[in-house]
Amino acid sequence: MLHPEEIVNKLKEYIGDGLLEWEVRTRFDGVTNIREQKHLYIKLNRGAFHRSVAFLYKISPLHISCPMASIESEEAIELIYPFMIYSGHGDQTEQPLIVSYDIPKSDLRTVSVTDIIPGIIIMERETQEMLGIEVENLPDERRIFTPDNMEEGFLPLRDKVSGISEE
């Protein structure tokens, strides 16, 4: 079981400049038996993402906990992957490992990680149809939550594109 700092160090060794920022946040829970829970936030370069996930998966199989969240800014969309590492062991070992990277709006593309984590496919399909980010190497490119006859370029979770007004 590696400490978050050790994970970061190993990752740094492996991808070097691809690791832009990282931060460890701790939260506590429990009443009589207080446990500390370390959350590791990693910001990556877009190009380093696929390699990093493959590397992290080798440490311990990653579990994707939540679909990709996104923050939209003027020139980029930040995609956030909330992974869990060391899950399925019991005994309070699970550690959140939140990986994020920026995608410039001029080039809305990313690479699928379904070859490493097959279970992520639904989430990547959702990202593709909701945010308009083209996911390369996705085994199944059909829409899942939105209907097939939906008009092109309507991206439900992108306010500035879909034209949904804020009231």
């Binding site: 506590f28 829970d29 429990g30 446990r35 019991g90 699970e94």
Partner: peptide
């Protein structure tokens, strides 16, 4: 997942609420 033998349970894996207090929880 647990039926397949994968012992994945947020209550036991990750500290929330009063679950860490329960010594026999798994």
């Amino acid at each position: 997942a647990r039926a397949s033998g994968l012992a994945k349970d947020v209550r036991a894996d990750y500290a929330v609420n009063a679950y860490p207090d329960i010594p026999w929880l798994k």
